[in-house]
């Protein structure tokens, strides 16, 4: 089932959680809503689910108005951030809940319920936990119960709110792969909310980057990482070095000196030059656009980083540059920085 969100705005008192957001999610797609906390991603998910109502705008499922239907009638599977398992029910009863509350014709006979629940429990690989209570499960197991419970109602849309947020790093990675596999097996249109870019980039067919209640960019994981549309996206996804500058007539300047870098068609005014740390090379100070003093050098694992202090228009700026392992660098040394690949954004946009 495809989902269309058209011009949705939602305010909580004076705070605008969503500001005229439009988004189309194709049938069978797995889309990640990625953004920092307060970016409106969870609100958008809850509006799609029907747990929250927009102040204005439309939500359509397969072209049909969804806002006129309550969450009960939308047939969405929702996986809550802290799972929200029914604490007084066994795993089996948790999963069976959606089938047991059905009324009239939709009500299944007990045998059918049992069969369906057992099938789901083995799908999420926790059939041996059927008689346990949620309090007796690990985080990863609870996550699987929550997913099985949401899938029990054969949802047309699966919505996941920070599904791996409360798990430790190792389990998180495992479950992520497993969820991707599950999505291949059951191609339900799925929307996932996360603040973890690695999770979004690895799992999703498309990533929706959100900030301050707006959609900043929609694209495949490769597109958002390699071609960030805005300064916000560049800064939020992947590691970013931000260098100061000013555009004047198609050229970049810093402290009245030309940097010799391309302004990428940006109009006159203060600008920021964004680059990935590995795209910035260390050089001798002479002839490079930026130079500065090394404040500290840190080594962790295979990477080395140096804090370099650069003189900007308004005071000094400290940037973290990647240091090749074969390069020796002393604190206090003067180095030059040469961005190989970079994007230029207006500074006011930051």
């Amino acid at each position: 089932m495809s989902i269309e969100v058209v011009g949705v705005t939602k305010r909580f008192k004076s705070f605008t959680a969503l500001d005229n957001v439009s988004l189309t999610i194709n049938s069978g797609e797995l889309v990640a809503l990625l953004g920092p906390s307060g970016s409106g991603k969870t609100t958008l998910l809850r509006i799609i689910a029907g747990l929250e109502w927009p102040d204005s705008g439309e939500v359509r499922f397969d072209g049909q108005d969804a806002l006129s239907r309550s969450v009960r009638e939308r047939n969405v599977g929702f996986v809550f951030q802290h799972y929200a398992l029914f604490r007084h029910m066994t795993v089996f009863e948790n999963v069976a809940f959606g089938l047991r509350v059905r009324k009239g014709k939709a009500k299944l006979p007990e045998a059918a319920i049992q069969a369906k629940v057992n099938e789901l429990l083995s799908l999420v690989q926790i059939d041996w936990l059927a008689d346990r209570y949620p309090a007796q499960l690990s985080g990863g197991q609870r996550q699987r119960v929550a997913l099985a419970r949401a899938l029990a109602i054969s949802p047309q849309v699966l919505l996941l709110d920070e599904p791996f947020g409360a798990l430790d790093a190792k389990v998180r990675k495992e479950l992520r792969r497993w969820l991707r596999q599950l999505h291949e097996e059951l191609p339900v249109t799925s929307v996932l909310v996360t603040h973890d870019q690695e999770e979004a980039l690895e799992l999703a067919d498309r990533v929706v980057v959100m900030g301050h209640g707006r959609i900043e960019q929609v694209g495949t994981p490769g597109e958002v990482y390699d071609h960030p549309a805005t300064a916000f996206v560049h800064d939020f996804i992947g590691e970013t070095i931000s260098l100061p500058g000013e555009v004047r007539g198609g050229d970049l300047y810093l402290n009245e000196k030309s940097l010799g870098l391309d302004a990428q068609g940006l109009g006159d005014g203060p600008a920021r030059i964004f680059a990935r740390p590995h795209d910035v090379e260390l050089h001798d100070p002479a002839g490079t656009p930026f130079r500065g003093k090394v404040l500290a050098v840190r080594t962790f694992g295979p990477t080395r980083r140096a804090d370099v202090e650069i003189a900007g228009e308004k005071g000094n700026v400290v940037v973290e540059a990647a240091v090749p392992l074969d390069r020796t660098l002393g604190v206090g040394e003067e180095v030059g920085l040469l961005p190989r690949r970079y994007k230029v954004f207006p500074a006011a946009n930051r």
Partner: peptide
């Protein structure tokens, strides 16, 4: 959260109250 989960699974108001809120 548990009430929201119940409603999203198709439970009505009374059903949610008697199956989830009250037992808790």
């Amino acid at each position: 959260a548990e009430e929201e989960a119940a409603v999203s699974l198709g439970a009505g108001g009374l059903s949610t109250f008697f199956r989830v809120t009250l037992p808790n």
